[in-house]
Design a protein around this nucleic acid. Structure first.
Lengths: 159, 159
DNA sequence: AGGCGTCGGTCGAGATCGTCAAGCATTTTA
DNA sequence: TAAAATGCTTGACGATCTCGACCGACGCCT
């Protein structure tokens, strides 16, 4: 479904999406039309979701990030979700199992901004906020190589 | 520090980082060498952190994602952080204020994998895990336009 | 076994794109 | 006020991408 050459191409592109077809071709040992075709298909299949740039939020004045756990009040789930989606300062939001329904990332320019945004959902949900002090790991893709068969189920069976 | 043209360029590139200089130039009304120079400086200044591709984890077999809150046991903070950084399935990790020291995102192929990875830090930290059921907002940058001056501090002063 | 369609690859030519040097207008600085 | 620094445009050159034509391996059917 995704052969070794594909994985190598992805690995290179994750590091620099502007790598030329020629360069990609050289690194994996194909011709550039072949690489072009492979990329086209990776995109078509949705493996590559997008070519994009990563922007430093600080450069835009967003000096603060926070992780917010959100528990909508009974009956307010959909309204809360819609609200979150419409507030552009939410840079990420996951719907999760457990007491907290949503876990979201917030980019703000100041503590005042943070307060202002949380106020907008305060009457529809309980929130708990954690300010981000450092980012030991910034967004990175999972391992591309097909290793990591450390499935615990097998270990359990074995014992 | 970042003028309107820069912001428009970024906005286009976030949507498609492969947009040609010619196309960018046409859309903002400059010549391509000018655009090239602007991009060069945006990169140099660190505003653009990287050109990259966004990969669908599902395409790589990672059918499960989880948000893990991690509270290292006394004295184990650094060991835990190092461990997290070294486990490639952690796709993101923030160090935050509050009881939970770290909040991390985990990409796994199965529940068994999840268990296996959590076991590796179980003796050094308390963890609480939430499985991701849906992603209402996938990673997106904060608003590029300089609006959003909804600073609560001012509102407080006004009242 | 032989023929045939498909898939994924190469090659080469033409079109497109990026980069460089030169030059110009505007603003800042001395 | 003159000089220097910015930031832009233009045009030409070199590199890159894309398209069509062609080729070989593989699987399938008769």
């Amino acid at each position: 479904m995704l052969d070794d050459l594909d994985r190598r191409l992805l690995e290179i592109l994750v590091k620099d999406a502007r790598t030329s077809l020629k360069e990609l071709a050289a690194q994996v040992g194909l011709s550039s039309p072949s690489v072009s075709e492979r990329l086209r298909r990776l995109e078509e299949r949705g493996v590559i979701r997008a070519f994009t740039v990563e922007i430093d939020p600080l450069a835009l004045g967003y000096t603060l990030q926070a992780i917010v756990r959100i528990r909508p009040l009974p009956g307010k789930l959909h309204i809360v979700q819609k609200l979150i989606e419409e507030i552009p300062e939410f840079g990420e939001c996951d719907k999760v199992t457990g007491d907290d329904c949503f876990v979201a990332r917030l980019f703000v320019r100041s503590i005042g901004d943070l307060d202002g945004i949380l106020d907008r959902i305060a009457d529809k949900a309980e929130t708990s906020t954690a300010i981000i002090k450092a980012q030991p790991i910034r967004r990175r893709p999972p391992p591309l190589d097909a290793t990591a068969p450390r499935d615990k189920a097998k270990i359990l069976q074995a014992s």
